[in-house]
Design a protein around this nucleic acid. Structure first.
Lengths: 341, 341
DNA sequence: AATGAAGATGCAAACGTTTGAAATTTTTTG
DNA sequence: CAAAAAATTTCAAACGTTTGCATCTTCATT
């Protein structure tokens, strides 16, 4: 790793002052044309790259943004990040992406690090642990600095900050309504991990819809998963051991729904004849599997874009107003073969 | 956004010098016990966060790493990033993740930015455009600085640097061999975009295996896709219009394979009876769809881990030795229902 | 009481860049 | 040719932190 060429190095070489070099490289008008050209050529030749670190120190502006998410290893989360990126990159911002792996300790550590790196804003999708335990101390340093904080995907109701989420409640509601409308009477739910907003909102959409249509909520029809496809089969088997078996399963996401479908087929049951399936997230693949999967589409990219836009708007106004800024994007049911005869 | 509290602020408040504050906060032994306690308490109270930017400038060490990838919106790429993260985070590094969207211009811009931000190393999966055009000027500034550069996933043979890739060639070869061994005679390939190593290595594995087993390579059986599930149906239809139709399709990845499966089913053909299907990447979902998809597993997380480890090793040795460092991880065929009767 | 040794704190420089103001050089003008 | 104007360059300070060295206290030892 060679030491990078600095403005001082160039100044020494040309027997002029660093100011002159700096101005020449920035096309300052008061620099002599020849000087400018010579310096620029030389700078290019030796591969001079202006040191952004020193500039950040000088301007107390880093043009970087922290993004803290539990995982990036799935379609939806990474779509959010692409959304943020697509809005903020043209404005010159760099993203510092941190993956907490659903752990509070890592989340707290990353936030300290981001503050220490003087990011100009933080997008946070809180980890499951943070949620479960209601921790928020690590966030107080953010608000102490009055730094823009925007919750993405998962709103953290214990803490005042902006948020952009998807309307999980109505998405789930419409999924279950669709099943009821198709004549299903015994609708099971493969729930996500307890405590997460995403999980609970979908669960509430599920229960509310059942109740409002005169059904009872049967606890034995609700079983937890951890969102992953591998976590679906065992709970599904338990559902199929019930008498009578459910005639529909609403999965907390497409992965879980797909995991359930396999078990159902293996048991020799037919989808949708014996059991209807609905997922959530609308993975690109879901439209192509057999039977194609009815799912609730959740616009990850738009979440990212909206959050980034919220951040930009904050730059021009009172930053505390973020706290009253809550955007909820609609989710949309897409009906496919897995739920209709 | 409040101005962050600085060491100078604290010094002013306590009528002492910044040096004392700095030493107190760093538990320097020559600081009086009371002074230390008072200063630390106050610092905590006002939420002091040491300014990492100034430290970076002072030490010319930023502890940050650039990661440049064409997209993060899929399972494999994000697995790589998680792998890198898992190794480098414990060592105190921060990741700067940049998404090029397969565009050379963005890639070049990001690299300038990363150099300017004084990252200590760059992990790069070159964009398709860079590959197609053989551009490498943007990389020369990296080597001019003698900064560790490691190609991940896609090796860029035109340029000397370390690399960690997956053995796409033998993965593809084993997939096709499996099809030949199962008695398939007319094996089509849904290829990726031309020019990418990933695409071409898999393609070569396909053709070499065919030739070595006495088959001809029939151009009409090879059609391009863009890796996405949506890009598979149209080429697949063209394959099914051939007379005779192929009796097996090797997809460049699972998404394409799944896209093909849908078209085949829609035509009333049976998988694997009429046509066998093999994919690549082994998505978690692939084991759960029906029929479950035979696929070549590619260890994304391990790629990331190996690349990160390569970077760490470079710190303790001659950095130019990276250029002779090439790790190729094995891929593994996983046989499932879509290819065996 | 003088000497010296710890113990505690301050000074100043450094990292790389920018920028207002001052200084220098060159050009123009009367 | 002198004076003013314009063009070009340099100076110095600033951003926040660390750290070797110098300085200043305090206190014990002779």
């Amino acid at each position: 790793m060679n030491k990078p060429v600095t403005i001082k190095d160039i100044a020494r070489k040309f027997k002029c002052s660093p100011s002159t070099v700096s101005r020449a490289l920035n096309n300052h008008p008061s620099i002599n044309e020849d000087t400018r050209r010579n310096l620029q050529e030389y700078a290019k030749k030796v591969g001079y790259q202006r040191n952004q670190v020193s500039l950040s120190l000088l301007n107390t502006r880093t043009a970087s943004i922290g993004v803290v998410v539990p995982t990036i290893n799935n379609y939806y989360e990474s779509a959010i990040i692409e959304g943020i990126e697509s809005v903020l990159h043209p404005k010159g911002y760099t993203l510092n992406i941190c993956v907490t792996n659903e752990q509070y300790l890592l989340e707290a550590e990353y936030i300290v690090k981001l503050l220490s790196n003087r990011v100009e804003g933080i997008f946070l999708s809180v980890s499951q642990e943070t949620y479960d335990c209601g921790y928020y101390e690590h966030l107080e340093n953010i608000s102490k600095r009055n730094l823009p904080l925007i919750f993405i995907d998962r709103d953290f109701e214990g803490f005042a900050a902006g948020s952009v989420t998807v309307d999980d409640y109505h998405g789930a509601y419409s999924a279950v309504k669709h099943l009821i409308d198709s004549g299903r009477k015994r609708i099971a739910h493969l729930k996500g991990p307890n405590g997460l907003t995403v999980t609970e909102h979908r669960f509430k959409g599920y229960t509310d819809c059942l109740i409002q249509h005169g059904f009872e909520v049967d606890d034995s029809l609700v079983i937890n998963t951890n969102f992953r496809v591998e976590s679906a089969p065992e709970p599904t088997r338990r559902l199929l051991d019930l008498k009578p078996i459910p005639d529909a399963i609403f999965g907390v996401n497409d992965q879980v729904a797909i995991g359930a479908m396999k078990v159902i087929r293996d048991k020799g049951l037919k989808i949708p004849e014996d059991i209807a399936i609905v997922g959530f997230d609308d993975f690109p693949i879901s439209a192509f599997i057999s039977p194609s999967l009815t799912s609730v589409c959740r616009p990850g990219r738009q979440v990212g874009e909206a959050a980034a836009q919220m951040f930009l708007n904050l730059q021009h106004q009172n930053p505390t107003s973020a706290k009253s800024n809550h955007i909820v994007l609609p989710s949309q049911l897409i009906v496919r073969e897995s739920s209709v005869l």
